[in-house]
Amino acid sequence: MKQSKVLNPKTLAEVLSLFEQCGDGARVIAGGQSLVPMISLGLSEPDFLINLSSCDDLFVIKKTRKTINIGAMASVSEILNSSQVINLLPILNFAAKKVATPHVRNFGTLVGNVCHADPSSDLIPALLCLDAQIDLVSKDGKRSVLLSEFITGPYSTTIRGGEVAVSVTCQLDKQSKLASYKKVARRAGDLGIATCAVSLDSHKDCIESAKISVGGYLRKAIRVLDIEKNIVGLPAHEICTFIDGVEKIESIENSILPDGSLTNNYLSATFSRLIRSTLKDALSGK
């Protein structure tokens, strides 16, 4: 039998040196809400788990003048309770409310959610609207990557061996006035079939800027740039008619991942209706 071990480093420096010692068989464990079921199901077979929960400095949610920085061990529940997130990043607060149930939220972390890169994640679409980036550290130094580049496909990212994510940073000036988040799931507490985050600014009833992202049965969560760019400048009341007129949303069509009864047709229709409805909610301040 192979030897396996859980390691409990206290500082980031220790984390990095453990990574070096353990080599490829090491995985970081944060809240464990995705990783532990994966191990139980035999879908992941790490030799070493490097547990981040003893690293006190990774728990913080920090505000600077221009950013909010969410530490690797900040749980979804902590994000829900953070007044800074509630006030300054409402879209993230809306999305966090939709993550599973308290059992999962109390331990699952936002950074772990991003690293797990589930296309159905609730948090990733909201973070895409915030142009968030992930901050990675390895023994060779630091780098920050936009989430849109970090996540490459279902459960895959550009994280490198020996690298640990220390935080996700959201730009405050990217936050718009109007925001909404909606999710379609098969039952309460489930991962989404289709999710949509919208953040908008309007001026004199005209759309000034728009960010729309979607997740769910897609290769990965994406920004719907082809709709975004076409609705800027439109009067708010014309948005729905515009969406209804779009035959196919190219960006979505290119990344749909049909699965069994969730056919392409079902998914395209659902995404287009969901975007329309989320936009409407955002405009009416819901």
Partner: peptide
């Protein structure tokens, strides 16, 4: 006897 609501977005 029952009453249902169907969400037109998703068919749920």
């Amino acid at each position: 006897f029952c009453e249902v609501e169907i969400d037109e977005i998703s068919g749920m």
